[in-house]
Nucleic acid binder design. Structure first.
Length: 431
DNA sequence: TCTGGGGTCCTAGGACCC
DNA sequence: TCTGGGGTCCTAGGACCC
């Protein structure tokens, strides 16, 4: 790329993008209130204690792949003295919110990209930005107890790459100079570029495009053809031209999924119906929290395809409703009816999914001439949502849990909700 | 016994229209 | 040889992210 290229950014940019990313976030959260775990391997499991989703640095040294089924590596973890946790999203969400609040105090332009990452638009010269990065790190560490890395570049893609190098550094900060970048990109495998996954990495390598520097120098037409518009934007970003914009206000979800595997195989229809009602309520609640209604409800059910000896069954039903809904009892009724139709006796079921889609804003829903909405529904749901958010999900619900029901998620190694549940707030001994 | 749960965007191709 | 040429809308499927 020649220096006279019109795409070249100005030499002294005012705006830079910083990516602040928490190190081993879930595992770090589990350590915050457990100083005894400071230098011990910690891993966090997916829902149902299924597979490994997060590992502390000590655990990463055990050479266990992320995503490994827990039961296959349990022995090795035990032998290494690792502490294992079920995922505790209540805790992670709360700590995440605290961190994002801190980040927001550094810029009005913050994109909360995921539970453990935020992009910040920062202005200033190099020295100022480095000082800000240092302060962010210190503050998050002191106020929340989580270590973060900061990568800074002209675009989101470059900030991501800088961040991955920051994680390898003692000071946790990486803001390459113009002179540093070519060397850094030449040492970055294409697989480690944001937006390049397994498939594209394989395709690129077999076309002799091995590093970020190689991709940066590729022909635009070729990249567009092989990797669609998203790939082309990535190329532009590597060249310093911002092409992925900051999303400061999270867009409303276009579809809401509530899907869970069962702790163990489920065979009884009553369990399936109860789980369905539960997932439907959860999805409806999430939808109301973004002030939306949906017009289409999809429910599906499947057996465990990992068990090759079992008879397999998988089916779904999609239904367009005559009018949009957000009232939990209505949604639950539809899902129940769909499950009644989907259920076949004699199978060992593993998972059901409830998917709400064709979502629109609650205020502007199209009225149906023949449907008179009950004005009390909205008021009831508002009250229910408020009570459940204050006293815990399921304080008020649509369908009581039967004694002996069999579909619950497995969470045998759950840590306390240290920051959100009065009974579980840690006590500090003084004197 | 035991293998996660959310999401997004883009493209190609078919149906249909004038 | 050569089989209209646009448009729109919808869906399925593939890629990616954390």
């Amino acid at each position: 790329m020649g220096s006279g290229d019109p795409c070249d950014p100005p030499l002294h940019p005012v705006n830079m993008t910083a990516l602040v990313d928490c190190n081993s976030f879930y595992a770090s959260c589990e350590k915050v209130f457990r100083p005894d775990l400071r230098n011990r391997p910690v891993v966090v499991l997916s829902n149902n204690d299924g597979c490994i989703v997060a590992m502390s640095p000590e655990a990463k040294k055990l050479d266990i792949p992320r995503g490994a089924p827990f039961f296959k590596v349990q022995q090795r973890l035990d032998a290494a003295g690792a502490e294992v946790f079920s995922s505790n999203y209540t805790l992670y969400d709360d700590l995440s919110r605290r961190i994002m609040d801190i980040l927001h105090s550094y810029t009005p332009h913050l994109e909360v990209y995921s539970i453990d990452e935020g992009f910040l638009d920062l202005r200033g010269d190099r020295e100022f930005l480095l000082q800000q990065a240092t302060q962010i790190r210190t503050r998050v560490e002191q106020w929340v107890g989580i270590a973060v890395s900061v990568g800074i570049g002209r675009t989101k893609t470059l900030a991501k790459i800088a961040n991955s190098w920051a994680k390898k550094r003692e000071d946790g900060i990486c803001m390459p100079t113009d002179e540093d970048w070519p060397r850094l990109l030449a040492r970055t495998d294409v697989r480690d570029i944001w937006g390049v996954g397994q498939q594209y990495a394989h395709m690129l390598h077999s076309n002799a495009v091995h590093t970020a520097a190689d991709l940066k120098a590729c022909d635009e037409i070729w990249v567009k053809k092989r990797m669609t518009l998203v790939g082309l934007k990535t190329l532009w970003e590597l060249n310093g031209k911002p092409s992925f914009t900051m999303e400061e206000v999270p867009p409303s979800k276009k579809g809401i999924i509530s899907s869970r595997s069962f702790g163990k195989a489920v065979t009884e229809k009553e369990d399936i119906l109860e789980a369905g009602a539960n997932y439907a309520s959860q999805a409806a609640e999430k939808m109301r929290s973004q002030k939306s209604v949906c017009r289409v409800i999809h429910t599906s059910i499947t057996t465990n395809y990992f068990r090759e000896g079992d008879r397999q069954y998988a089916r779904g039903i999609t239904e367009e409703l005559p009018h949009p809904v957000s009232y939990t009892p209505q949604i639950v009724a539809v899902v129940r009816r769909q499950l009644e139709e989907l259920f076949r006796p004699g199978f060992r079921y593993k998972k059901i999914t409830v998917f709400l889609t064709e979502i629109e804003a609650a205020g502007q829903k199209q009225l149906n001439l023949f449907y008179q909405e009950d004005a009390r529904h909205a008021a009831v749901m508002e009250a229910v949502d408020r009570i459940n958010s204050r006293y815990g999900r399921q304080t008020l619900h649509c369908q009581p849990k039967r004694p002996g029901s069999n579909w619950q998620m497995k969470r045998e190694k759950l840590s306390p909700c240290y920051t959100t549940r009065w009974k579980e707030i840690p006590l500090v001994k003084t004197g």
